[in-house]
Design a protein around this nucleic acid. Structure first.
Lengths: 342, 342
DNA sequence: GGCAACTGTTTAAGCGCTTCGACACTTCGA
DNA sequence: TCGAAGTGTCGAAGCGCTTAAACAGTTGCC
């Protein structure tokens, strides 16, 4: 194992000089700096992480807490995890993956042990019990998702309300008057997941503004569930011509069911999805969709936490809530509303 | 911050005694042990990770290197990552997430800095350049995926050959004689991804044994690509009645296309998928599928690396290759071959 | 020419933990 | 009864790094 002392000896300087070259915290003559850098390269030196963390009281690790639940579309979680990891690396940080089955104790453990300098929480609930722990431990954090009370917290999320509104607007613009909103399974609403409620209310408000009649139905995302949901919708409102789908699992079934019920998309019915572009492209017809970038979510969270870690302990805590503007991509699944038959 | 000295003072013992109580490496009287444990709980003590790593020369962290590529079904990756994390926690280890964009240098960095005690590599290629680095650093590793040369390595993977063979057997048992194997995009084969080739050759060998005629076609997993692939298959072999699909993205399109071409599943054509059960359940009809457990993959990898970390440095290195037996679940997408029209 | 201010480097004191060896005390067998 | 062996605890060294403070050497200014 190569230590800083080895490098120092090799370069003919003291080990503190090596440390200062590496951290840049003090002026070092260019000549010395180069000599040290060469020695580092030549010996293949990597500072011992434990020693560094101990001495500097900073581990250069952020923890990322991922949900175990799978009602969130899983690839999105992975995309966030990867973008967090890469963004953190760009700041010289590594990412520790922890699962939510540890719950608040996990946060406590990580923070109290100094394993991580900060924590990024995914799938934050409106009244998340991990937040008080975080504050008690005085650990820096960034939240992906919006809790009820955001004072003193850094949060980032998609602007789900705007996404819902975009869906309403697009369908209204195309002349649709009767819309069905196919949401997540009822469990998502009963635990008051912010994203589901915000999308829905964003949609609802805009739909009312635009004078749309609409229906919201929850749906578990299986074929059977989607079939049931669609049947109820068509029974209640046979003139429905626009569909907004938020549950990724329901998309495929919905398209199949519309087709088998004799409705052609987009001539007879328009479908707009709230899902990743990659997924939207996979269906036939390709789906008009409203999306936010999962990568961006991860990147912003990392920027937020880095900013917090950078500010000295005494400074004013930065609290900011960032909502990422969603994008509507028009593809082949939406079109002008059919003329009323009546 | 609570230190071991605080606990020692509180319990009226020396800090080494506290350490021994926590590690169990020396006999401690029951009375002392209880007193110390109470103090730990009362003060909410968590050992400082950096100090522990430095002193014990063991970080209690394993690194998990995930691929950036997305031709592997992403939810599977996430499932592995989560099962690795939970299995590691059960051993008192945490998981550091690193991405493959760092490549072999990432492995070097993690190993040389002592950040992680071991590394789990996902998506291992036949001739993976990270392996020599691992060996040079004398870092313990477990591989998910099978490289060409496995000497001295611990590996775990699905038994893809057996999975391919299961598909051939099932269709042969049902009387199908003309089979099409719809694989991954051609890129997967040109970089000699082990899993794709092993599935195919397992299928091929068994198909030949059972006297099946078959076709292998690569497919990118989009709707267009699947349409093209299917058209070519039906042009070349109009009597094809059995379909094996390995590319998750192609499943939905394939079912739609078969239906629109007037073929009912499973009466006119049988479809068997190589994919997760959860996904197989989502389609209509629900798909007969051959699966391996992604969770098991993660669990076994962790067991392997823990075993390696446990063995003293001088000991014989454990090398073992574990192949997980796939399971065939018969659902509604396969049935007896239709009688020949000819 | 002498003092101040600066630049570049070193010395040394920890950071909080593990672990080796020492030590005090008890138990046991001869 | 005494030494050997065993049990439970402690003291202290040291893991590899950072960083405050000290120091040597140079430069600038009056």
């Amino acid at each position: 194992m190569v230590t800083i002392a080895d490098v120092a000896r090799h370069a003919g300087v003291s080990s503190s000089t090596v440390s200062y070259v590496l951290s840049g915290k003090r002026a070092i003559s260019e000549e010395t700096r180069n000599r040290v850098r060469n020695s580092v390269l030549e010996l293949g030196y990597h500072p011992n992480a434990g020693a560094r963390a101990l001495a500097a009281r900073r581990s250069h690790i952020v923890a990322l807490m991922v949900p175990l639940r799978t009602d969130v579309y899983v690839p999105v979680m992975m995309e966030i995890a990867i973008s967090v990891t890469m963004a953190a690396r760009a700041h010289g940080y590594d990412v520790l993956l922890i699962t939510n089955d540890e719950g608040p104790d996990g946060v406590k453990r990580i923070a109290a042990s100094g394993l991580a300098d900060g924590v990024i929480l995914m799938d934050v609930e409106l009244d998340d019990e991990r937040i008080p722990v975080l504050q008690a431990q005085r650990t820096e954090a960034a939240l992906i998702g919006l809790p009820q009370d955001t004072t003193g917290l850094s949060c980032v999320d998609h602007d789900f309300a705007a996404a819902g509104a975009l869906c309403a607007d697009h369908l209204a613009d195309l002349g649709h008057r009767e819309i069905a909103f196919i949401g997540y399974g009822s469990g998502v609403y009963t635990r008051h997941a912010g994203y589901a409620e915000r999308t829905l209310s964003g949609f609802r408000d805009r739909a009312e503004e635009r004078g749309l009649r609409f229906l919201h139905r929850s749906c578990e995302g299986t074929y059977e569930s989607t079939a049931g949901t669609l049947a109820r919708i068509l029974a209640d409102r046979p003139d429905t011509t626009g569909f907004v789908v938020q549950n990724e699992g329901a998309i495929g079934p919905l398209l199949t069911l519309l087709r088998t019920s004799g409705r052609t998309v987009p001539e007879d019915a328009s479908v707009i999805a709230l899902c990743q572009d990659q997924l939207a492209e996979q269906f036939a017809p390709r789906l008009t969709a409203v999306t936010g970038s999962a990568q961006e979510l991860g990147r912003v969270a990392v920027e937020q936490i880095m900013r917090r870690l950078g500010t000295a302990a005494g400074d004013q805590p930065v609290d900011e809530q960032v909502l990422l503007t969603p994008v509507l991509t028009i593809r082949d699944s939406t079109g002008p509303a059919p003329r009323r038959q009546s």
